[in-house]
Nucleic acid binder design. Sequence first.
RNA 1: GCCCUCAUCGUCUAGCCGGCCUAGGACGCCACCCUUUCAAGGUGGAGAUCAGGGGUUCGAAUCCCCUUGAGGGCACCA
Length: 489
Amino acid sequence: MPNQVRVRYAPSPTGEPHVGNIRTALFNWLFARHMGGSFIVRIEDTDVARRVDGAMDAILDALRWLGLDWDEGPEVGGNYGPYVQSQRLDIYHRAVDELLSSGHAYHCYCTPQRLQEMRQEQTNRKEPPGYDRQCRDINEDERSSLEAQGLTGVVRFKIPLEGETTFHDLIRGEITFANQTMDDFVILKSDGYPTYHLASVVDDNLMEISHVMRSDEWVSSTPKHVLLYDAFGYEKPIFAHLPIILGTDRSKLSKRHGVVSVLHYRDEGFLPEAMLNFLALLGWSLDDHTEIISHDDLIRHFAIERIGKAGAIFDLEKLTWMNGMYIRQMDRNTLVHHILRLLDDELPPEVPRPISEEYVHAITPLVQERLKTMKEAPSLVDFFFLESLEYSTELLIQSGLDSARTANALESTLQLVTGQEVWSAEHLEQELRPLAEKLEIKTGQLFGTIRVAVTGRKVAPPLFETMAVLGKDRCLTRLNVAIGLLRDG
RNA sequence: GCCCUCAUCGUCUAGCCGGCCUAGGACGCCACCCUUUCAAGGUGGAGAUCAGGGGUUCGAAUCCCCUUGAGGGCACCA
């Protein structure tokens, strides 16, 4: 019986929930659910300067929106808490003391200015920048005299001067770094906060994390973590570094590529199911043909072995297509309620509330296969609700017709339609189709002008269904308005 | 500059324990069908000499080496 799988998603509350970040959360969650393990959320807020108010809530919102529920973490608690690093400072201080007394770490009193100059010179000499270990061997006397001067300094980890550090990555295999290529990195900052390296290693150990699944950009710091695990005598987790998500220019997806917040896509009318499906397929695949995968199947089939190694470009067009697929598959009533809520928000105030659910229920089938994002819904159906339509008269005149013939056609339509007792799509079509022939114009021309008269636009849902839903009164009124427009013009 | 990683259609990818691959699917694109517009749907098409070059082998996208390109990292940021 293998050890219990415990994975974590450890975001920093420094901004919006980035799609790349959330994809990492998704893979962790998928793995935990697939293995029947635990998914833990830990907030890594050790950078006081970059902390952003509300960022943690936004991240948690994004997780909730996608249905990525966590077993331990903020709001839900757990046996390994607290799950916010700024509340665990004493733990890190104890860990640092341990390293200090075992000789794996040392105090450093170099000023930021000196460090910066040092790096500048190194770069000028085309050497790799890195700490020159000036404080590595200072003795107790020197140390106390420096402290006496009021210098607080930082604590650095002692990297072995020789040898190499190797670790196994589930996705990339064996990776080796020469210890000489690493410098003595800071583990405790002068403000008393630990750095990521120290805090994450200590916490992953304490929280009994079995697999560290994180973004690719961490592979270069992993040997440092390995060295930390060894210095502490901790058992190491299994590492898996995920390929990163790229922008269209193949560099790491960031703000300059456009909007990267998952919440933005939610607000733009993307469905969480579609986003989940899309993100899962960014760097992972089930087989050679499956594109649409349900939440349950995702969990059932997710496997780390099938995660790719190369970075993947975030393709908005494919996301959009997928979103359309999910809208088309959506249960009718669910969609009705979605649209109802959107209309309530978006329709102008003069449209009376509450909006009729029954009416929306009749409209929905006409737009379900036309929607790519939910946000498009209001503008697609607003003409069903508006009292008067605004459009330019020219729209009424179909190519090949003039104003007079158009007016004539609409008058004939009005006449014919006024006498109808039955007001159904089938019936209307049955009556109107022959009219075109009688008027000696193409059906497309007739239907086109009626469409504009009745909907105020050239592109709309199918005409007769639309008229049926709109109702006789509204159609007659709108035909009259259109005729008036043509006659006056 | 140094270290690490990656490399199949424009994009996401299958294949990568060698022969089933004259490289499969999907998005996008084009055409046609359906059709009152727009979609959706259907059919078909263009699109990758598997980054390039060497090997190994009867046979390589698949194994090995080199080159190139791309990305990531090199903070008292994560």
